[in-house]
Design a protein around this nucleic acid. Structure first.
Lengths: 129, 129
DNA sequence: CTTGACCTTCCAGCGACGGGAAGCCTTATG
DNA sequence: CATAAGGCTTCCCGTCGCTGGAAGGTCAAG
């Protein structure tokens, strides 16, 4: 299986797949001509990675999760701990973004948005009380 | 006013202030010895930038907002348009993060988190249905 | 005069890729 | 069999907004 087929099968760009190999997340075989040759197990790993990334896990978390996935003697507590920490980080981001959204949406609503220069948005940026 | 005083006055790290000068957001004076000398107007700009960044505006947005701020003939519509676009981007991020959080929090709750290897989190990553 | 705290510039790195160049390999067509 | 198109390879630079650190000049206190 060539890289473009693996890309098609996983939804990941070929560039990303090469990058994952470079940083040691996957280890596809090589043919005599130097082309990567993706076995089904590597494709499966790529799909795993794609889903973990879609849930926002960072690369190092993905590396850990992948290792746990391949370890049949893992403790689910280890997986849960990673997921839990990530969940907390996401919730913090949501909190921050929500605060920004509330402030901004209030400012946008109070701004006339016409040709006059008077603007509560700039006023707020200029001197938040 | 030296850079560390400006940093103190604005809450921005000195490194960040130097960076803002490098990319042309501010233009502090220089003394004979090469030290930057921050007038009150530059400090004011820095405070403006700090607040805009805290609301999540990107550097280029900050540049535009700063230009509008200094333009007494601006139209508030221009300010509002930038803020509105940014608001939409934030809301999209919140939507994405919320979806991640919902999925993750469900998975974390259904994972026993003990010494057994069985784990719905890995199961989900392995094959989301 | 020395010490230590400033200040300066420059260079490298973060995360997770993406763009594009230069060059080899394969496949389809004339 | 030659050629063209497309796929594959590696390599290097750019993204965004800083942050850390090195090497060296400057200043104020004792």
């Amino acid at each position: 299986m060539n890289i473009s087929d693996a890309a098609q099968a996983t939804g990941l760009p070929a560039k990303t797949i090469r990058y994952y190999e470079e940083i040691g997340l996957i280890r596809p075989d090589r043919r005599a001509n130097g082309y990567r040759d993706f076995a089904e197990t590597e494709v499966h790993k790529l799909r795993f990675l794609a889903r973990a990334r879609a849930l926002g896990f960072g690369i190092e978390d993905c590396r850990s999760l992948l290792a746990l996935w391949e370890d049949r003697d893992r403790a689910s507590a280890d997986v849960r701990q990673i997921a839990n920490a990530h969940l907390a980080a996401i919730e913090e981001k949501i909190t921050d973004l929500t605060a920004m959204r509330d402030t901004l949406s209030h400012l946008v609503q109070t701004c006339a948005g016409d040709t006059r220069p008077d603007c509560p948005i700039l006023k707020n940026l200029s001197a938040a009380e």
